[in-house]
């Protein structure tokens, strides 16, 4: 059951992204920024958490889920460390993902050459 929920929630978030691309001419870079930032804001407003409880990876794997992790980390940081936590919490919570993207990105660029499209 949780797989079906993940499929539906994840699919729906991507569907919203597709409508934005087709209807508004937003570039993918803007879509990514928009989705992460709205994930942060929705989490702060307490709207995203229920979605994560329901959809699991369906809500955490799309980019608003990255925003969710950032916001939740910042809130947790404040609870544990006060003002300092506001600055460290977000990145601490997402450090794994960010580091993986940088390291694997670097490795891939070393190992592979770009290919011409046909």
């Amino acid at each position: 059951m949780e797989y079906i929920k993940a499929f539906i929630i994840g699919g729906l978030i991507c569907l919203i992204g597709q409508i934005l691309i087709d209807k508004t001419n937003l570039t993918p870079a803007r879509i990514l920024v928009l989705f992460v930032t709205s994930g942060v804001i929705l989490t702060a407003l307490g709207i995203y958490e229920p979605l994560v409880d329901f959809g699991g990876a369906g809500a955490t794997v799309p980019l608003p889920g990255f925003g969710y992790a950032l916001a939740k980390g910042a809130i947790k940081g404040v609870e544990e460390k006060g003002l300092l936590g506001a600055f460290t919490g977000g990145v601490v919570a997402t450090a794994g993902g960010i580091t993986a993207a940088i390291v694997f990105g670097y490795l891939a660029s070393v190992l592979f050459d770009p290919k011409a499209k046909n």
């Binding site: 920024v33 977000g90 993207a101």
Partner: peptide, 29 residues
């Protein structure tokens, strides 16, 4: 090349995502 251009698209995502999370943290505090 690699080091700088890597963030041409992801950079803005981190800038806005992390900044927003700090704002959320500060508002909470």
């Amino acid at each position: 090349g690699v080091g700088a251009k890597m963030f041409s698209i992801a950079g803005p995502v981190l800038v806005y995502g992390i900044s927003a999370s700090v704002v959320v943290g500060l508002v909470n505090y």
